[in-house]
Amino acid sequence: MPATLDAPPARAAGSDFAPLVRRVRASGLLDRRPGYYAWAIGTNLAGTAAVWAAIGWAGASWWAVLLGVPLAVLSARTAFLGHDAGHRQIAGSARVNRWLGLVLGNLLLGMGQGWWSDKHNRHHANPNHVGKDPDVGEGVLAWTEGQAARQRGVLRWVARHQAGLFFPLLTLEGVNLKVGSVLYLRGRSRREQLVEGGLLALHAVGYLSLAFALLSPGKAVVLMVVHHALFGVHLGAVFAPNHKGMAMPEPGERWGHLRRQVLTSRNVRGGVVVDWLMGGLNYQIEHHLFPGIPRCGLRRVQPLVRAHCAVVGLPFTETGLVESYRQALGHMRGVGASVRP
């Protein structure tokens, strides 16, 4: 299994990051918070069960398919908890975090923990670095003018209009996450295929059985479409403001950990509602510098990080939610404009 980024690099000692590491460790914010996560996981499971019960109760009516909306929101909470387990924020044991990730991701969401860990850890190691960060790699969308220039056919048309197409395309992301999880298992060890593949299969059987047992076939299909479309939009809306439109290191550039994480990340201002909706990932700078900090400690560590950035002369980027989308979509629009006739 890929290594999990749950602590600052060992080489931080002697760097401009070292004083901040010492201050954060002394604050106790790196300590695990099992009580918080027991409450978060328990309430999320209870909420998910309540929504499925409501679907069964309203099953005779087409109004039941609208319950795909809260189901999508709760699925995103499950994804955020799986993300926290992947960063070993929940338990002190790597094994416990691993199994929490498998249950939350593979079994409850149908999203492979191994696939996510491989992709996400490469992103954390080199955020926004083309050729190293899979989140800005070649694909349907173009993140650099060079990528846009290489697009052909329908993908070139998509690149030209990608800012306007971004949120509509996110409706497919919920299914894409599941497909990517299955494809990742090809070529993996037999044990990984059995464990992860078995849990993914259990999810598929359980999810489909529940939907078709509680609803007529037509309503079940519509519910699943609403659920997955809004789940994809929700996750994409959380991750889009974090790095899009921020600094992108040139090939061959080598930045230290502090500079690499701060300059490529954007925080989103907000209170408890934004924190909840974004799963704490609105504190993207703090999360990238200290990925092992429990989610509930990110708000408290922010003043320490902001003050340290001011001392070392690094800009600390933080915007409102709407402005973060404006900047991210503005970057995509600018890249798309480079291939317009």
Rank of each mutant, 00 (worst) to 15 (best):
L108P: 05
L185Y: 10
Q193I: 09
L329D: 08
A211E: 06
L177E: 02
A60P: 00
A220F: 10
H288M: 09
E318C: 08
L109H: 04
L141W: 08
F17R: 01
L100S: 04
S15T: 15
W116M: 10
W255T: 00
N176H: 12
M224R: 04
E138I: 01
G218S: 05
R152P: 02
M278T: 15
A40T: 02
L177F: 15
M1R: 13
G101R: 03
A72L: 02
V268L: 08
S27C: 07
S338C: 12
V21W: 09
Q151H: 14
R260D: 12
A18E: 13
G256W: 13
R98S: 05
H243F: 13
A3M: 08
M1V: 14
V136N: 05
Y207A: 06
G82E: 09
E138K: 01
V233A: 14
L277N: 00
H129T: 15
A94K: 14
N128G: 04
V182Q: 08
Q302F: 01
C309G: 10
A247M: 11
L214M: 12
M278G: 05
F80P: 01
E173H: 07
R22V: 13
A163G: 15
G114H: 10
M248G: 00
A50R: 10
S15H: 05
M248C: 03
